[in-house]
Design a protein around this nucleic acid. Structure first.
Length: 468
RNA sequence: GACCCCAUCGUCUAGAGGCCUAGGACACCACUCUUUCACAGUGGAGACACGGGUUCGACUCCCGUUGGGGUCGCCA
């Protein structure tokens, strides 16, 4: 039987890192086995599901390259089928109507809490004569869960997990308004979609028991469950907004590359020996659920950033150029012309080597794109003193006399210049850097001068030594 | 509180009883390279939570303790 996996987010917020990794593992496993990877939007909670969230999830997945193999299934659109299954369950005595009001249930929970008992539905209506039904109250439909015995799950990650049925209560399958709840919908949809492997967060482990019971009541074969450990925040608790947990699109905006995100997420809870830096093609050929760890892992932004730097460095210049172009145009307020494009692509090799994020690449590339006179950074202004000015003045005529304007020639020229003057290289290189870039940090200064061209270089030096 | 799960450097992890003097990556600290910042390279510091078993031999298996996490909604 061919593998079918699914990612089943509820559209109540953005696609966060945990969700992205769950999607990734499902994708990876489907790719590894030559199976299918599906997406199901679990929007049965009409109050909290939003179209914005759906878009955020779809866009996020697309950015990561984790779009589903088939058109997404919207769970709410299948509500009639869910209700039909509930009716069947009702008919066969696997479910019953419960007339408790939400207020009564809240009271029940409160009481259980104060008496320090476990908080479960007490089964008031489980065996009660439906004739007792109070007037004017729309009932919910509850699953008649087995009261004794055990439910066992053979989880592909967690191993065999057993729970006493007495620890579970009768969950609600149909709300008072007749709409299905998550617990029922998941079972029906996983069955109807022929899902073979439900790879999802560890926080669903308890649900898996309830769902298994429903599968059993319907006499359906449940999928193989694989409960992957959660991603925790730096403090070791479930990742949440409190940790500044953001949607995947925020990472995109911060300047992370999708392949870096993927590579990083992949290494959280899964590993293949000592491999750290690898493509998703490699990962999918290696990916076995058995290699997924059981313990939760914490997010480590330093490592993500480090990986991102590696991916930026490994990216083709053309791609980076296209990536940064829109932002650069926004920052300079003018479209990128051929000359700036040329400069950027010639300078990109050194530029990309020192950027950890795309946003940094943009910052550091800007000096190639702005027109004279340059704005100097505060530090640059502070470090550009009288001596700097006079050093550049004495170098300027030599630059002006150069015909063969190459990095090599310029470097030799400056080196012989300092032999004449007795200056240290840094004493001339740093002012030159400020003149050419407006900053104190940049790629090699001779490369920059070469890329900038003779006219622009000389112009920038003249700007720098001109009286303020 | 009840139930379930987990436990190797600060973090992510390798480790399937002898291969372990516990390996790699990030971060950290030195040094090298060097015109700045990076990159790169070399080296360093840094962990098997604890206690019992089992075994000739436990990071690896079993039990307990401790610690951490998750779940207990007409949310998903």
């Amino acid at each position: 039987m061919s593998v079918v996996t699914r990612f089943a987010p509820s559209p109540t917020g953005f696609l966060h890192l945990g969700g992205a990794r769950t999607a990734l593992f499902n994708w990876l496993y489907a790719r590894h086995t030559g199976g299918k990877y599906l997406l199901r939007i679990e929007d049965t909670d009409r109050k909290r599901s939003t179209p914005e969230a759906i878009n955020a999830i779809l866009d996020g997945l697309e950015w990561l390259g984790l779009s589903p193999d088939e058109t997404p299934v919207y769970q709410f659109s299948r509500r009639e089928r869910h209700a039909e299954v509930a009716a069947q369950l009702l008919e066969h005595g696997h479910a019953y109507r419960c007339y408790c009001t939400p207020e009564e249930l809240a009271e029940m929970r409160q009481k259980a809490k104060t008496e320090k008992r476990s908080v479960r539905y007490d089964g008031t209506w489980r065996d009660r004569d439906p004739a007792d039904a109070p007037e004017g109250i729309e009932p919910v439909v509850r699953f008649r869960a087995p009261r004794s015995g055990k439910t066992i799950i053979k989880d592909a990650v967690q191993g065999t997990v057993t729970i006493d049925n007495s620890d579970l209560d009768d969950l609600i399958m149909l709300r008072a308004d007749g709409t299905p709840t998550y617990m029922l919908s998941v079972v029906v949809d996983d069955y109807d979609m022929r899902v073979t492997h439900a790879i999802r967060g560890d926080d669903h482990l308890t649900n898996a028991f309830r769902q298994t019971q429903i599968f059993q009541a319907m006499d359906w074969q449940p999928p193989i469950f694989a409960h992957i450990p959660l991603i925790h925040g730096p403090d070791g608790t479930k990742l949440s907004k409190r940790h500044g947990a953001l949607g995947i699109e925020a990472y995109r905006e911060m300047g992370y590359l999708p392949e870096a995100m993927l590579n990083y997420l992949c290494r959280l809870g899964w590993s293949h020996g000592d491999d750290e830096f690898f493509s998703m093609d490699e990962a999918s050929s290696w990916f076995e659920i058995a290699d997924v760890n059981k313990g939760a892992s914490r997010i480590d932004f330093d490592k993500l950033t480090n990986l991102n730097a590696k991916y930026i460095d490994a990216s083709p210049n053309e791609r980076l150029l296209n990536l940064i172009a829109p932002d650069i145009e926004k920052r300079t307020g003018k479209p990128l012309n051929d000359e700036t494009r040329r400069r950027l692509s010639e300078g990109m090799n050194s530029l990309k080597q020192r950027a950890q994020k795309v946003s940094e690449l943009i910052d550091n590339s800007l000096f190639y794109c702005v027109s004279r006179p340059l704005d100097y950074s505060e530090k640059a202004t502070r470090n550009f003193d009288y001596a700097s000015r006079s050093r550049l003045s004495s170098l300027l005529p030599k630059f002006a006399a150069v015909d063969d304007w190459t990095q090599d020639v310029l470097e030799k020229l400056v080196k012989s210049h300092i032999e004449d003057t007795g200056e240290k290289l840094g004493e001339i290189a740093q002012p030159l850097r400020i003149a050419l870039t407006g900053t104190t940090v940049s790629p090699g200064i001779f490369e920059i001068a070469a890329v900038l061209g003779k006219e622009e270089t000389i112009g920038r030096i003249e700007d720098a030594i001109a009286p303020p």
